[in-house]
């Protein structure tokens, strides 16, 4: 009764409102039809475009692993550090070298210390560990002076590891066969650009091979 009284007091207003609501419903149906048509006709292409944007987008919901979890029984890393993070130190006492160790071998990380190749194993995993650093005086300038039986220590957040040098080699920069990745023995291969004294582009690498020392 109240509604009819209200409508009788202002019939134009309520008539217009009624009509506008119907128009909005018609418009909504129109929008739904267009969206369904686009989904039907271009659904695959839209999904491909969205997937592509996802591929080139940084994931912001990924968990950053602060502590590396190492399983001593299986001798393997359970949770790896994020690429580009510092996870330890590398020390060569006989040369007075003590440098941060990063997971990753991009030039960006080599500005700050020694990088570990993401294609090699971690210390303690029983395989090849490939590390590299710049040959300037801040980093590995003195590396070519290393002698056999010298000890290289890697101190990580999950354990300390010692390696004894058994060989050094000068190899061509493209000779990847000299840095073989294997899982039979824990071998540390640490290299730098060579020769260290000359200026300009270096085409060779000075590689130190060291075997794990188990205490």
């Amino acid at each position: 009764m109240h509604n009819s009284i209200a409508k009788n007091n202002n019939p134009v207003f309520w008539k217009a409102i009624e009509a506008i609501i119907i128009d909005i419903i018609v418009a909504s149906i129109g929008i739904i039809i267009i969206i369904l048509a686009i989904k039907l006709l271009f659904g695959k292409q839209i999904k491909t475009a969205i997937d592509y944007v996802d591929v080139v987008s940084l994931k912001t919901d990924s968990t950053i692993v602060k502590d590396i979890k190492f399983d001593k029984k299986t001798e393997s890393i359970v949770s790896y550090p994020e690429y580009g993070t510092r996870y330890g130190n590398i020390r060569i006492e006989s040369l007075g070298i003590s440098l941060p160790l990063y997971f990753g071998d991009k030039l960006t990380y080599l500005r700050y210390g020694v990088g570990q190749s993401s294609g090699s194993y971690f210390p303690g995993e029983g395989g090849s560990i490939i590390c590299m650093g710049h040959n300037n005086r801040t980093f590995l300038y003195d590396l070519p002076k290393i002698k056999n039986d010298a000890i290289i220590e890697i101190n990580t957040t999950y354990g300390d590891f010692r390696y004894k040098v058994y060989q050094t080699k000068i190899v061509d920069m493209y000779d990847v066969d000299e840095l073989t990745v294997q899982k039979e023995k824990e071998i540390l291969m640490l290299y730098t650009c060579y020769p260290v004294e000359t200026l300009g582009d270096k085409k060779e690498r000075f590689v130190v091979y060291a075997e794990r020392v188990y205490e």
């Binding site: 080599l110 500005r111 710049h134 300037n136 650009c193 004294e197 000359t198 200026l199 582009d201």
Partner: peptide
């Protein structure tokens, strides 16, 4: 600068 670091310059 990354290129300069191993160059000796």
């Amino acid at each position: 600068e990354n290129e300069v670091m191993p160059s000796g310059f």
